[in-house]
Amino acid sequence: MLSIKNLHAEIDGKPILKGLDLEIKAGEVHAIMGPNGAGKSTLSYVLSGRDGYTVTEGQVLLNGQDVLSMKPEERAAAGVFLAFQYPVEIPGVTNMNFLKTALNSIRKARGESELDAMQMLKLLRAKAKLLGMSEEMLKRAVNVGFSGGEKKRNDILQMAVLEPKLCVLDETDSGLDIDALKVVAEGVNTLRAADRSMLVITHYQRLLDYIKPDYVHVLAYGRIQRSGGPELALELEAKGYAAFAPEAA
């Protein structure tokens, strides 16, 4: 599904990722853990195509397609989805209109027919229901006045509607209390599927109690320092990140 090879990336000439390798197969959930400044957010932005991040070396393939040569919207159509650490407020644009425009843009890019207003409404209602969200939320402006938990759930709703192949969850737990975290994790778990891979980026082990990963990787100093099963997260929690400095690895 996703193959990252020797990825180097920099911001304003400062190298952040220094030779990152990662393979994720269809249906797998991988967690990337790492200390602040390790390059976690850089990885999520490089995968989703944000301006300001320069890839100097390496390759990212999604089902054989070269992701790095695509614009953000082309990546979305190819199946990349980033759940933001801080979902953005868009005043004046309703969730309904946003989801409709997004889904039809992606369907069009994939050569599928656009959905009409009735089909769209039916689909959005069904997806909201699947995630236990009220229809009222569809009528509100995107993330405006939403609590931290509501914003994250709104991103998960977008994920449910757009049905991506690769979901990158960037620090989904930040700014959430434990109840909100459970609800958001439940939403993510609902969307686990055999043909969908997930990359969960997090600072704390806590999130992984609710979204159970198949593999855990430690990202530090711009590279994956160690990989293992879920037990690696517990080891990290016990020892801290200091043990994973490159010279110690």
Partner: peptide, 18 residues
């Protein structure tokens, strides 16, 4: 906001227009 919209599949122009 522009990047958020584009990451959801809207073209740069469509995101700007919205």
């Amino acid at each position: 906001a522009l990047f958020y919209l584009r990451s959801r599949g809207l073209s740069d122009a469509a995101a700007r227009r919205l």
